[in-house]
Amino acid sequence: MNNLLEIKDLHASVIEDSLENNQKEILKGINLNIPKGEIHVIMGPNGSGKSTLSYVLSGHPNYCVTQGSAIFKGKDLLSMTPDQRAAAGLFLAFQTPVELPGVNNVNFLRTSLNSIRVARGESELNAVDFLKLVREKAKTLSFSMDMLKRNVNVGFSGGEKKRNEVLQMSLLQPSFAILDETDSGLDIDALRIVAEGVNSLRSPDFSALIITHHQRLLDYIKPNYIHVLAKGRIIYTGGAELSNQLESEGYGRLLEEAL
């Protein structure tokens, strides 16, 4: 079996003190297989559950799985802690990256990379080797040294935060990356750079799940499949050409057909 990730009948709720009986079901039976080496795209209306899916897969404590399973590299993904999932090769580029006041970006990147290296049984990188590596990656992503020296995402513009996510991805070299609207808020040059960041990771051992609202990104990254997520379910799956159709028609017809 060549599937990197197999999601079966996944149901998940958000846990919120403010909600009546504390829970609200958002994912209502997701089925999705992602084979090794493939890039899948998820599109869908606002509030349909795309970010929720990315959080559930990466283990965010505010969401609880009520039914179904997710098998990653043959292991039960849902029983792992978030850091175990990261060590297993899962990476999430956040739709809204978090700020860490007081925590220097370079220091953070190094701690992150070394945690993952140690978990994989590799040795830690020393400061000198790490700096060399991070400089090189930053350069290909046109990420300035000044931003490396600043605190993680503090005072970064929206686009800079997204680029920082991609920098982290290219440092950590995950085998599976979820990009949650990483292309939103990027200028045209940045969009191309980010796309190159993803493409440079492309290999038979790298898969990605890209969440996006725009066809633009798909001009640079050619996906194997596009899925449409609506109201907590995948209602339609098509090839790379689907994005053009959605761009001109919207989701209306697909939604109607699904009902």
Binding site: H60, P61, N62, D83, L92
Partner: peptide
């Protein structure tokens, strides 16, 4: 929680 989750997603243990 968001900060802790972000760090964990990047491979750090909660303690770290």
């Amino acid at each position: 929680d968001e900060q802790l989750f972000f760090c964990q997603q990047r491979g750090l243990s909660k303690e770290a």
